[in-house]
């Protein structure tokens, strides 16, 4: 699994951080998303999928990564 984010769309709701805090954070200066682990470990992937669904701006997309 590989995570890409669109910081133009991101509105800084923090839902991804709330849902998968090992994987996402928010920038200090504008609250927008930072991906800490673009290829999240297996244990975080369910939370990442949930975060994708919860994002109010539709700013997170997933693609198949090298190790999926």
């Amino acid at each position: 699994m590989r995570i890409t984010v669109d910081t133009e769309r991101c509105m800084g709701s923090g839902m991804c951080v709330l849902t998968a805090e090992e994987v996402f954070d928010q920038r200090e200066d504008d609250g927008k998303v930072v991906v800490l682990r673009p290829e999240p470990p297996a244990g975080d992937r369910d939370a990442v999928r949930e975060a994708v669904g919860l994002c109010p701006a539709g700013a997170i997309t997933l693609s198949a990564g090298d190790r999926t």
Partner: peptide
């Protein structure tokens, strides 16, 4: 108006 506020209301 909303953009300058976002960083003040983050999860952290």
């Amino acid at each position: 108006y909303r953009r300058p506020l976002t960083a003040r209301f983050t999860v952290r």
